[in-house]
Simulated assay, not measured.
Amino acid sequence: MTVDSNAVAGDQLRAFIERIERLEEEKKVISDDIKDVYAEAKGNGFDVKILRKVVSLRKKQPHEREEEEAILDLYLQALGMNGPA
């Protein structure tokens, strides 16, 4: 019995593509769910822009946040947008 390498590669390729398509669909569903949560929060009076910033900050380690804040303060001072330190 001979194995057609093109058929095997094609089957494997098709399996990868189908897995990617399923994951993309799951990603879209999750993205829509997140959007719904933000809309619900907005409906309850929360500022969505600030919520997104909080979520972003919570992903970072404390030292990363502190470093970013220090650099931001430095830049704002250089632009005259902050009071003196």
Rank of each mutant, 00 (worst) to 15 (best):
A78Y: 08
I20V: 14
H63G: 01
S56K: 03
A85D: 07
Y75H: 11
Q77C: 05
E68S: 01
I50Q: 03
K42V: 03
F16I: 10
L72I: 06
M81Q: 11
Q12C: 10
D73C: 07
E24Y: 09
P84V: 13
R65Q: 14
R65L: 15
E68P: 02
Q61E: 12
G43N: 11
V29T: 12
E67L: 06
R22A: 09
K28A: 13
L72Y: 05
D47W: 06
I71Q: 14
P62L: 01
A9D: 12
R19K: 14
K42H: 10
E66S: 09
Q61H: 09
V55E: 00
Y75I: 15
N82C: 06
I30C: 00
K60N: 04
L76A: 15
I71V: 15
I30L: 12
E69P: 03
Q77E: 15
L23Y: 12
L74Y: 12
R52E: 14
L76K: 10
A78H: 07
V29P: 02
S31M: 04
K42A: 15
D11C: 08
D32W: 03
I30W: 02
S56Q: 03
F16P: 01
V55A: 00
L79A: 15
L57M: 05
K49F: 08
M81G: 06
G80H: 10
G43I: 10
K60R: 09
P84I: 12
Q12S: 14
Q61I: 01
D47F: 06
D47C: 02
E26S: 09
A15I: 09
V29E: 13
K27P: 05
Q61T: 04
D47H: 06
S56Y: 02
D4M: 00
E25R: 11
E24N: 12
E68V: 02
E64T: 00
E69K: 14
P62Q: 02
E40H: 11
K28E: 13
D4I: 00
R14P: 04
A9N: 12
Y75S: 07
R58D: 05
I30H: 04
I34W: 00
D32S: 07
R58C: 04
D4R: 03
S56V: 02
Y75L: 15
L51Y: 03
G80E: 13
D32Q: 08
D36G: 01
E69N: 14
E18A: 12
V55H: 01
L79P: 07
D4Q: 00
N6F: 10
A78T: 04
D32L: 07
V54E: 00
L72F: 10
V55Q: 01
F16V: 12
R14Q: 15
E24P: 06
Q12T: 15
A85C: 05
R14G: 08
A78K: 10
V8E: 11
A78F: 09
G10L: 10
G83L: 12
L57Q: 02
G83M: 06
E69I: 15
E67S: 09
D36C: 00
I17E: 14
R58W: 01
G80D: 10
Y75F: 14
I30D: 03
K59C: 02
A39L: 07
L51W: 08
D36M: 03
M81T: 06
N44R: 14
E24Q: 13
A7Y: 05
K53R: 13
V54S: 01
K28Y: 04
K42S: 12
D33R: 08
D32T: 06
K27T: 11
V48G: 05
F46C: 08
D32N: 08
